[in-house]
Design a protein around this nucleic acid. Structure first.
Lengths: 294, 294
DNA sequence: TCTGTTGTTTCATATTATGAAAGTCATTTT
DNA sequence: AAAATGACTTTCATAATATGAAACAACAGA
């Protein structure tokens, strides 16, 4: 019973770092600001602990305090490092000119997505250059794998083993009445996608929101990413849609060809299945999916 | 001499968290990728420690591993949280339409900067909509306070006490032959700035790079931010410059007026002087200040 | 002035981080 | 092909560091 007989559990799992990161994620998801008390109770952590961790992170500009009300919020260092994270990816810098041009030609918001565990990740995005109403997706954000066009374009060409990895978490949540509800129906949709050469999303993630996407393939076979286009449904029906599809597929093909010329050096965002039991969870409640931009 | 007599130093300073953050900063500053060994030796930390911290951060997508060479790089979570950090700031969302319009009218890259300890922080930026060559500044990045136009516009209107806080670190490093070398000369430049109503930077931070900036004032007195415009020097001389200055000042005045209508609820990025002895240091070596964009 | 709330600091305790060394695995050299 | 190198990963005893209850401080509202 001496202190020495105490068994030492869970060595080296960086508990305090994990707590710090949970704080950061919480700040990101639950609104722009939170007080110390809110954080401490929201995360079930001791106030002293939260305070110490926040103070340390403040020194590195990862969080900052609103001087008016002492509430904490994410620091701008995140934006700076986020920009660096993006620059570090060969895929993004190669593909960007294609996105810019496609956005200009189509007038719609376009995006580039890659497979990630538990969903597809928006790697880059160009806002619609002309229209006031645009889709708001955050670069780096993860989207469910069964109800967006880019996700379906990726899943349709992904080896089954990896496809399961992408689908793995969260089951198949129903976002709208049109969301694909079952694995069986999803498989039918993916068959269609492969036959057509492109994927569609008709209000499956959000009412009023539609999109199309085409695969970006390395040397004609390995799926690297998906090129997508999304906007209000009214612009993605009938003849409007008829015009958009060949344009998108043309750009996806050209991007595929361009990327196939180099080595297959596109870091995936895949990670071992065990990972991220705490990383991202539900969509943040304060984010409006549609935004008025200039 | 029993174990109990060991004195327990530095309680509760989150040492491991600090190490983790040093790793992140290092990844941000020293190139896109780094191997475990590089990190461990570069930061003088034990390999095991670095490994454990990286593994924990990987679970939260703050870092990721290039599957091809096992090297580590910043994760996309940074970009996602960075976007959130920006949305959380009232100043940014109010000011953005002004930046967009000014960029369109002037054809130059424009930016919004606020005072921060040890430099000014680029809060938002719109790239030049027309020209191929643009200035690359990262949102969230900190710039030295004595050799950029936005910094001078801010310092000129900042109370002396706070101005010292902004200037505080790093002395006055010489970046080019035209960099202002002394506090005395800086004061003269700031006097001129106040008289003119705008600030200039003629290749003081980087050869070939010039800019102008005007203050954004709350109710005509308190400095909130600076609105700046920058680009290759050849577009910031002679009649070109003559045309740009009134345009910029007009927009700064209109933005000031717009912001003065609401409450003074613009969280500064100021923090206590003691802070951030480790946060940001030298400019990363792999970042090219000029970039070819489409 | 009192009272309740929130943020900050302290300090003894034991949980958790640490790093040397051993263990893998893949690549390069002999 | 075998051996050697180099890079990443895991282990485990040790001790350094995180922890949380409680005390303290600062402030707003009654």
């Amino acid at each position: 019973m001496s202190p020495r007989t105490q068994i030492n559990r869970t060595p080296g799992s960086s508990k305090s770092l994990q707590k710090a990161m949970r704080i950061l994620i919480h700040l990101g998801e639950h609104g722009p600001e939170a007080s110390l008390t809110q954080l401490s109770s929201g995360l079930a952590l001791n106030k002293s602990t939260v305070y110490r961790l926040l103070s340390a992170m403040q020194k590195f500009h990862l969080v900052e305090q609103n001087p008016l009300n002492n509430k904490y919020r994410l620091g701008l260092k995140f934006h700076e490092l986020g920009a660096r994270a993006l620059q570090a990816r060969p895929l993004q810098s190669e593909a960007r000119p294609f996105l810019v041009e496609l956005a200009r030609r189509s007038g719609e918001s376009v995006s580039l997505a890659v497979p990630g565990a538990g969903g597809v990740i928006c790697l880059d995005r160009i806002d619609s250059p002309t229209s006031i109403i645009t889709v708001r997706t955050l670069i780096g954000e993860r989207f469910p794998a069964h109800c967006t066009a880019v996700a379906k374009a990726i899943l349709a060409w992904l080896p089954q083993r990896e496809a399961y990895n992408v689908l793995f978490r969260n089951g198949m949540k129903l976002y709208t009445p049109l969301t694909i509800p079952s694995l069986r129906k999803l498989k039918i949709a993916l068959d269609l996608t492969r036959r057509q050469g492109y994927a569609t999303d008709h209000e499956e993630l959000e009412k009023g929101l539609s999109g199309i996407a085409a695969p970006v393939l390395y040397k004609g076979s390995r799926i690297i990413a998906a090129l997508g286009m999304a906007g209000p449904t009214l612009r993605f029906v009938g003849p409007d849609l008829e015009k958009k599809i060949p344009l998108l597929m043309d750009f996806a093909a050209r991007l595929s060809k361009h990327l196939s010329r180099g080595p297959a050096d596109f870091g995936t965002v895949m990670e071992p299945l065990a990972a991220s039991s705490l990383g991202e969870r539900s969509k943040p409640s304060w984010r409006t999916p549609f935004a008025l931009t200039t």
